[in-house]
Amino acid sequence: MQQEELNKQLLTDMAQCALMALAFEQQSEMCGYGPTSEHKFLSQWITKAYKQKRFPRETAPTLEALIQMAKEKGQFAGLKASLVKLSNAETEAA
Rank of each mutant, 00 (worst) to 15 (best):
T12G: 04
A21C: 12
S43D: 11
D13E: 14
E25Y: 10
Y33T: 12
E29G: 00
S37F: 01
L10V: 09
E38L: 01
Q44W: 05
F24W: 06
Q16T: 10
Q27E: 14
Q44A: 03
Y33C: 05
L11P: 02
G34F: 00
T12K: 05
T36Q: 15
S37H: 06
L22T: 05
L22P: 01
E29R: 10
A23Y: 09
S37N: 12
G34D: 14
E29P: 00
L42P: 01
H39T: 01
K8G: 00
T12H: 05
Y33L: 12
L10F: 09
F24R: 06
A21Y: 04
Q44Y: 06
S37R: 02
F24A: 08
A23F: 09
D13W: 07
A23R: 12
L11F: 03
S43C: 15
L19K: 03
M30G: 03
G32V: 10
C31M: 06
C17K: 06
A15E: 04
P35R: 15
S28A: 07
M30I: 04
H39V: 02
Q2E: 15
K40I: 08
L22Y: 05
L42K: 03
P35L: 14
Y33M: 07
A15S: 07
E38R: 15
T12N: 08
G32N: 10
L6G: 00
E38Q: 15
E25V: 02
A21D: 15
K8H: 04
F24L: 09
A21I: 02
K40C: 03
L22Q: 06
A23P: 01
Y33P: 00
L10A: 12
Q9N: 06
L10D: 10
L22M: 11
E4F: 04
Q44K: 08
G34S: 05
E25K: 13
S43G: 06
P35H: 14
C31D: 00
S43T: 15
Q3M: 09
K8W: 01
Q44N: 12
A15H: 05
Q9D: 07
L11V: 04
Q2Y: 09
P35K: 15
N7V: 11
E38P: 00
M20L: 11
M30W: 03
E38I: 14
E25I: 00
A21F: 05
Q9V: 01
L11N: 14
Q16V: 02
F24P: 00
N7Y: 07
E25R: 12
H39C: 02
S43L: 04
P35I: 14
C17Q: 08
Q27G: 13
Q2N: 12
E29L: 11
Q26M: 13
A18R: 01
L11S: 04
Q27A: 12
M30D: 07
S43Q: 15
C17R: 07
